[in-house]
Design a binder for these strands. Structure first.
Lengths: 193, 193
DNA sequence: TTTTATATTGAACGACCGTTCAATTTCAAC
DNA sequence: GTTGAAATTGAACGGTCGTTCAATATAAAA
């Protein structure tokens, strides 16, 4: 009946995500994207609708990948230890190989205004979803006996979100890896705060 | 001999700062700025050189104003109490009257890349200066007996920077004022962590 | 093999970008 | 009051922006 799309949507969204993540929404032009994902304007607009549409899908892809990583912590034998390793990897190790030192969602929330209300809402929503996944990790830690039964997993989830946002911004600002490592170590002392 | 400039440079830089702070560097156009500061392109370029030049001056103005506020904490009878009030004011109270919930310098560090190396460097430098002023506050707190003589004021300064960056981003993300207030309260318990 | 719905192409659109500069206005100095 | 250097104006520049669409290519169905 008809022709089927020849590009790999996931691969294209990944490439778009990497560019948007690096440069941010406004500094990324459609022509930058055309080069990186190797598609012509007509195809891009037929598939994604607009610059905003592609960005939204990139955000969702970013959140999906993040959630896989965090869920892996919940599944680990020692959820808290796995979580600490994840923070070290995110903030210290991969900070110069990832497209940006920052969390793409936090970066988006920081950059966008009500001029892009839909995208701003989406980034906020996805960060809320991620916070729930962090809460799962702390619930597992309680089940493992790594945390007291009396701690509030949801409160710890918001706390870890604040710490990650702060540490990544601080790491990007100062490049002071040693201090960031110390701050992460301190985070995980005294049975988590 | 010659004509003197008729505009008030400080007022103009303040207005430019507010617009840049709200919209970010890339989303702010020179025409937006022309409207807000009520100057024509020729005058702006004669006075500030470029969009980057005006942004740099706006950053410096922002840092200057911030430092005044933080220094006031160091001068207070109770530096720690004053600092806590300052955080509450920055993150909770004025978050919907200021141009943005975010710190303008952190927002800039998050947004810009090496494509605007000079501005990125400047924002990082100013944040480092601000960290030193926070250290002054903790030194004063030690002198007042509010903090143990053995604490590292510089380490606390980096710690407070991380917390502020994290809390402002979290507040912008969730709008959850109550949780943010609790997190600030917890920050200032146990003789500052 | 022909048909046909859809995927793809790339030139082109109007709008807006940051910036320049010749013309004009302004006012301190004489 | 005249002079002249500096401040100001605003039209205009070349370039890039996000987006559109008629033309073309493609592959599944008949």
């Amino acid at each position: 009946m008809a022709k089927t799309a020849k590009f790999d949507r996931e691969e294209v969204v990944n490439k778009a995500m990497n560019l948007y993540w690096q440069k941010g929404f406004h500094a990324t032009s459609m022509r930058n994207l055309q080069d990186v994902i190797d598609m012509r304007p007509g195809s891009i607009y037929a598939s994604f609708g607009s610059k905003e549409g592609l960005f939204k899908e990139a955000l969702q892809n970013y959140a999906r990948l993040s959630i896989v990583q965090i869920r892996a912590c919940a599944a680990a034998a020692s959820p808290l230890h796995a979580l600490k390793q994840l923070l070290r990897q995110m903030i210290v190790d991969s900070c110069h190989q990832a497209p940006s030192d920052m969390c793409m969602l936090a970066k988006t929330v920081a950059e966008l205004t009500e001029d892009n209300a839909e995208l701003l809402k989406e980034a906020r929503l996805l960060l809320a979803e991620i916070e729930l996944v962090f809460a799962e990790v702390f619930l597992k830690a309680k089940a493992c006996g790594e945390l007291s039964e009396h701690v509030d997993a949801q409160a710890l989830a918001s706390y870890i979100q604040v710490q990650i946002m702060g540490l990544r911004t601080y790491a990007r600002t100062t490049g002071n890896i040693e201090r960031v490592e110390v701050l992460i170590d301190n985070l995980f002392k005294q049975g988590f705060h």
